[in-house]
């Protein structure tokens, strides 16, 4: 091991921490209040809320991708990656929901308004919970992997019916359209902080993903080794030529 590979990750983690701190501080102190919103000061939460939503979608996309790979190659490592990414998607979706609810309270007057986007994220949360409930109910690891991968892909297909089609068909969304693109109430500086937040959270996601996958891989290897050790010898089969 060279010094670079030893300290590289540490430097990276410190840089990531600084980036996340910087976006947080910038969100509270550097950004001007957004005049277009009923509560201009509270609109700062946009720079936390939107990146969480984007990274949650990213995590779900990665999870769905590994679900496809699992079904094609049937390799337990892909199942691990898929489930880890779904766990992170659940985490970021929860953060999106909470920040969104705080935002909704200040702008629309209530934490929960059955806005189409709120309905959609509720459905996503239910899907993630159902995904993990399904996993918990299947004992055989291979079966667990293929069933949950198939469910994930099935759910992915159902989601657009809520997230895209329903909001457009009702046209009653309280969400401002094109939040990210600068509009009247949002200063251009919002765009910078928001995308910096997306970058920071994406890197955080990547780090958490890799740590959990490494941990899961170790766990798999360890249980295998314990079982093999307790069995003593690996069971063998012998073909014996019998009578003619």
């Amino acid at each position: 091991m060279t010094n670079v590979s030893k300290f590289g990750p540490t430097i990276g983690k410190i840089a990531l921490l600084l980036l996340l701190c910087a976006t947080t501080v910038a969100g509270f102190l550097w950004l001007p209040a957004a005049k277009g919103f009923p509560q201009p000061e509270m609109a700062r939460i946009v720079v936390f809320h939107v990146p969480c939503a984007i990274v949650a979608d990213l995590a779900a996309a990665v999870a769905a991708w590994y679900a496809i790979i699992y079904l094609r190659r049937r390799n337990q490592a892909d199942d691990l990656k898929s489930s880890v990414s779904f766990g992170l998607a659940l985490l970021f979706s929860l953060l999106t929901t909470v920040t969104g609810a705080i935002f909704a309270k200040s702008q629309w007057g209530g934490y929960w308004n059955w806005d189409p986007k709120q309905t959609a994220i509720l459905m996503l949360l239910l899907i993630y919970v159902a995904y993990f409930a399904l996993r918990a109910a299947v004992d055989d690891p291979r079966k667990r992997a293929s069933l949950s991968a198939a469910y994930a892909l099935f759910a992915v297909v159902a989601v657009p019916f809520l997230t895209y089609i329903l909001p457009n068909s009702t046209d009653q969304t309280l969400h401002p359209k094109n939040v990210i693109n600068t509009r009247d109430g949002l200063d251009a500086s919002y765009k910078i902080v928001l995308w910096a937040g997306v970058l920071g959270l994406s890197l955080f996601y990547l780090w958490a993903f890799r740590v959990q996958v490494a941990l899961g891989t170790l766990e798999m290897r360890l249980t295998q080794r314990i079982h093999r050790a307790s069995q003593g010898v690996v069971a063998r089969a012998v073909v014996v030529e019998g009578r003619k």
């Binding site: 004992d139 798999m220 249980t223 079982h227 069995q231 690996v234 069971a235 063998r236 073909v239």
Partner: peptide
């Protein structure tokens, strides 16, 4: 099964007219 190894590396050829018991 899971991580419990049942058997490994079984090779066999069963020709027509043969029964593998």
């Amino acid at each position: 099964y899971g991580s419990r190894v049942l058997f490994s590396g079984i090779d066999a050829v069963v020709a027509p007219g043969q029964c593998l018991v």
